[in-house]
């Protein structure tokens, strides 16, 4: 079963990673930090299932259907390839990498979510079918992850301003 952390936490983490990378790499400027944040939001596209029920899509298509891949490495890579294809060619490679960094941070954090079964989701699908056991650090509905990640983001931003 896929559980999601709140999107704000993921976006804070993407922002933090982006700022830190921008210290090391001059090419990474504000729009590129945004790209990492977008990447960090990509796996949450799976929320489309709240609008478009996969069971109903199945009935229309006449084929089995699941939005599940949007929250796995394979699906995320395809979405990101589409996204970077829509950017200007000279930037698309860099954008691809930035989006992947953001998305991996998201998928990694979500492996740590508490689930009832103790197993996480098929993060590396379709390369690996395994649902890894989750260490169960937090719930998607917990309030503290957004606060903690927000504080860290604020701290890194302050350091960034001072530099």
């Amino acid at each position: 079963m896929i559980t999601l952390a709140d999107l704000l936490t993921h976006v804070f983490v993407g922002y933090t990673i982006g700022l830190i990378l921008s210290w090391r790499y001059e090419r990474i400027k504000s729009p590129h930090i945004t790209a990492i944040m977008v990447g960090a939001a990509v796996p949450d596209l799976i929320r489309i299932r709240l609008l478009l029920d996969p069971i109903k899509v199945e009935q229309v298509l006449g084929l089995p259907f699941s939005w599940g891949p949007l929250h796995t490495l394979g699906g995320v890579l395809v979405i990101i390839a589409v996204g970077s294809l829509l950017t200007v060619p000279k930037d698309s490679k860099l954008i691809f990498i930035l989006l992947v960094i953001g998305a991996i941070s998201h998928l990694f954090l979500d492996i740590l979510l508490i689930t009832a079964s103790g197993y996480s989701y098929a993060v590396l699908w379709p390369f690996l079918e395994l649902h890894p056991p989750t260490p169960g650090f937090y719930l998607s509905t917990d309030v503290w992850p957004a606060f903690a990640s927000g504080l860290i983001a604020l701290f890194v931003r302050t350091v960034d301003k001072i530099r």
Partner: peptide, 24 residues
């Protein structure tokens, strides 16, 4: 890429539960 994505949606939809792999 879009065809690939659609195939992934269909493939994933066709997976059945597999408790050994943590998919219940």
């Amino acid at each position: 890429l879009l065809i690939l994505l659609l195939s992934l949606f269909i493939w994933y939809g066709s997976l059945s539960p597999d408790p050994d792999k943590g998919r219940f």
